[in-house]
Design a protein around this nucleic acid. Structure first.
Lengths: 145, 145
DNA sequence: ATCGCAAATGCAAATCAATCGCATTTGCGA
DNA sequence: TCGCAAATGCGATTGATTTGCATTTGCGAT
């Protein structure tokens, strides 16, 4: 039982159940966004626990985590399924290789000043943005094509 | 029978069927991205034609148009359905109201110089990007909440 | 203009991600 | 330790999209 997770749940008024603990523990380990189904499979195959976590429970847990902002939900490219990642509270974007679909995180953000301008022009109250950049990664460039 | 559309199809080796003609004609009229279902309903309710276009046909037509790049497919926010828009070959982004989900197009792009830098830093060959900005539109701000 | 046939469409059934209803179980405060 | 609201499991359901197959249609060759 990871004490940091217990604290995280307490701070967000989230009841500490085995299933929630296992989901967030797994997400914290993941370096890139994952689907609900892949979380389900990972937990299913984890022999450290004999009980299996139900897929609908995974979805319910993810909804809760997203609502509490401890997890972020995305959907990349034209995929019509969501991916989830632990919210590390750092503003970042993703660089996606169009050949191999590898997702790389980019630190830093070029949009601060632009958002200010845009808010003034449109009278929207700007809250956040999502930026994905597509290209060909170095290894796919080497392999030609 | 719109001759521009006939030309567009010819240029893209797309067989000119009634259904395809009606779908692209409708998309060209739309100012903002629309779902497959709303295209289906719009064509269904159009009394200028007595034949109705099937929903699976709409999907098949959209897939073809996207493959040929005469139409762009998006999916905004965390909606798990796609929207489609005629590809006007102009680079633009979208501003989405988190309250009413209205989508507004933004002309211009703040990322030209940034992409150059990013390419140099990461050795990716940068191809394109997708930027969505979220906020609260003026009318929703007025209504409070 | 007509014919032939590959390609496109209609329709219904299937699939895939996500959600829901309800009976059972579990974590946590008294 | 007890009680109960909240969480989970499981199966059924929804909503978007896709597919299989029989029928129809557009277009090039005649």
């Amino acid at each position: 039982m990871n004490q940091n997770i217990v604290e995280l749940f307490k701070a967000n008024q989230i009841k500490n159940t085995t299933q929630r603990h296992r989901v967030i523990e797994y997400l914290i380990k993941c370096k890139e966004p994952v689907t609900a189904e892949s979380i389900y499979i990972a937990l299913f195959e984890d022999d450290a626990y004999e009980d299996k976590v139900n897929l609908s429970t995974v979805y319910r847990i993810l909804d809760l985590f997203v609502k509490q902002s401890i997890v972020l939900r995305n959907s990349f490219g034209n995929e019509h399924k969501s991916t989830y990642e632990f919210n590390r509270r750092e503003h970042k974007h993703h660089l996606i290789c169009v050949k191999c679909n590898k997702v790389t995180s980019i630190k830093g953000c070029p949009l601060k000043a632009y958002e200010q301008d845009l808010g003034n022009q449109t009278h929207f109250k700007i809250l956040e943005h999502r930026l994905e950049i597509f290209g060909v990664c170095p290894s796919c460039q080497e392999r030609g094509n």
